[in-house]
Lab assay of single mutants.
Amino acid sequence: TTYKLIANGKTLKGETTTEAVDAETAERVFKEYAKKNGVDGEWTYDDATKTFTVTE
C-alpha cells in the first residue's frame, strides 16, 4: 500500500511517499524521515486517503 506524507515544517515543506504493509509501518518510516530532516511537529493521519501530515 502506498502512504503519503505531507510535511509542513519550518525547514522542510513538501510531499513524499512510501510503500508499507500497514499504516503503523508507514508512520515509523515517516517519523524517521522527519527526524532526519529536523521536522518535529503535530502529526495527523487520514485513513481514507492514506495520508500523514506533520505540521510545525
Rank of each mutant, 00 (worst) to 15 (best):
L12R: 03
K4H: 13
E19H: 14
F30A: 00
Y45N: 00
D40L: 12
N37D: 03
T1F: 14
N37S: 07
K36V: 12
L12N: 07
V21Y: 12
V21L: 12
T49A: 07
A34Q: 02
G41W: 06
K4C: 05
T53N: 05
K35F: 12
V29F: 15
D40P: 03
G38I: 04
D40T: 13
T53V: 08
T55V: 09
V39L: 15
Y33E: 03
K36N: 14
K4Y: 13
R28W: 08
K36G: 07
D40Y: 14
I6G: 02
T25M: 11
T25F: 06
E15P: 06
G14A: 12
G41F: 03
K36P: 02
V39Q: 05
G38F: 06
E42A: 11
D40H: 13
K4T: 15
F52Y: 05
T16V: 15
T51F: 02
K31E: 03
G14L: 15
E19R: 13
T49S: 10
A34F: 05
V54Q: 02
N8I: 15
I6C: 07
E19A: 08
A23H: 10
T55L: 07
D40V: 14
V39R: 02
F30D: 00
T49H: 06
K31R: 15
V21I: 14
N8F: 13
E24S: 10
F52E: 00
V21M: 13
N37C: 09
V21D: 12
Y45K: 00
K50M: 07
A26L: 01
G38A: 05
T2P: 05
T44D: 09
E27N: 05
G14E: 10
N8K: 13
V54R: 01
E19S: 10
Y33I: 09
T53E: 05
V21G: 09
G41E: 02
E24M: 12
I6Y: 07
W43F: 04
K31G: 03
D22S: 08
Y45M: 01
E24N: 09
G14P: 08
E56W: 09
Y45G: 00
N8V: 14
L12T: 07
T25C: 06
E27A: 10
T18K: 03
A23G: 04
T51M: 04
T44V: 10
A48S: 12
I6N: 05
K50T: 03
N37L: 12
D22E: 04
A7W: 15
V21Q: 14
V29D: 05
L5R: 00
L5C: 06
A7V: 15
K36Y: 09
A26P: 00
N8C: 13
E56I: 08
T25E: 15
K10F: 12
N37W: 13
K4N: 05
Y3D: 01
E27C: 12
V29T: 10
D40M: 11
K13E: 07
K10N: 12
T2D: 04
T51V: 06
A34K: 01
D22V: 03
V39E: 03
A34W: 08
K31W: 06
T11D: 11
A23W: 14
E19C: 13
N37T: 06
I6W: 05
K13F: 13
F52C: 01
N8A: 10
E56Y: 08
G9K: 04
T53Q: 06
K10R: 13
R28F: 08
G38K: 07
K36Q: 12
A26F: 01
E27F: 15
G38S: 06
T17Y: 15
G14H: 14
T17C: 14
V29H: 14
T53L: 06
Y45E: 00
E15V: 13
K35Q: 12
K4P: 01
E15I: 09
A20I: 02
V29R: 09
T53I: 08
E32C: 07
G9M: 12
E27M: 14
A7M: 15
L5S: 01
T25D: 08
G9S: 13
T53S: 06
V39Y: 11
E15F: 09
A26Q: 01
N37Y: 14
K10M: 14
T2Q: 10
L12K: 04
E32H: 07
T2H: 07
D47R: 06
Y3K: 01
I6E: 04
T51S: 04
Y3V: 01
E56T: 07
E15Q: 10
G38P: 02
T55M: 08
A20E: 04
A48G: 08
V39D: 02
R28A: 11
E42G: 05
L12Q: 07
E56A: 08
K50S: 05
V29P: 00
R28P: 02
W43L: 03
V29N: 06
K31I: 06
E32A: 12
T17D: 05
Y45Q: 00
N8P: 05
A48L: 13
A48Y: 10
E42R: 09
E32R: 05
V29S: 06
G41R: 01
E15C: 14
T44L: 07
E32T: 07
W43R: 00
A34R: 01
V54S: 01
A7S: 12
V21P: 15
T16A: 11
R28D: 05
A26Y: 00
T1S: 10
K35V: 09
D22F: 03
K36R: 12
A20M: 03
Y33D: 02
K35D: 08
D46I: 04
T1A: 12
G38L: 05
T51Q: 04
F30T: 00
F52D: 00
Y45H: 01
G9L: 15
L12S: 07
G41S: 02
K13R: 12
L12W: 15
V39T: 04
A48F: 10
A7C: 15
E24L: 11
F52R: 00
K10I: 15
D40Q: 12
K31F: 05
K36H: 10
Y45T: 00
D22I: 02
K50G: 04
N37R: 08
N8Q: 10
T1Y: 13
G14K: 10
K10L: 14
G9T: 15
G14D: 08
A7L: 15
T51K: 03
N8L: 15
T18G: 03
K35P: 01
T44H: 12
T55S: 09
T16H: 14
Y33A: 03
T11W: 14
K35C: 10
F52M: 01
E27D: 04
I6P: 01
E27P: 00
D22K: 03
T51P: 00
G9C: 15
D47S: 13
A23I: 10
D46Y: 04
D47Y: 08
Y3E: 01
G9W: 06
G14I: 15
G14V: 15
Y45F: 07
T11M: 10
D40E: 14
K50Y: 08
K31P: 00
D40N: 13
L12F: 15
L5A: 02
K50I: 02
A23R: 15
A23P: 11
K31A: 05
A20L: 03
Y45L: 02
E27G: 08
V54M: 06
G41P: 02
Y33G: 02
D40G: 07
N8G: 05
A26T: 00
W43Q: 00
T49D: 04
A20Y: 03
L12I: 09
T18C: 15
F52W: 06
K31V: 06
K13D: 06
K36F: 09
V21T: 13
E24I: 13
D46V: 05
F30S: 00
A20W: 02
D47W: 07
E24D: 11
K10W: 11
T17G: 03
F30I: 02
T18D: 02
T1I: 15
V39F: 15
A48H: 11
T25K: 06
E32Q: 09
T1M: 11
Y33Q: 03
G41N: 02
V21W: 12
T49G: 04
T49P: 01
F52T: 01
T11I: 12
G14S: 11
E19Y: 15
A7K: 04
E19Q: 14
T18N: 03
G41Y: 03
K50Q: 10
G41A: 03
A34H: 02
T49L: 07
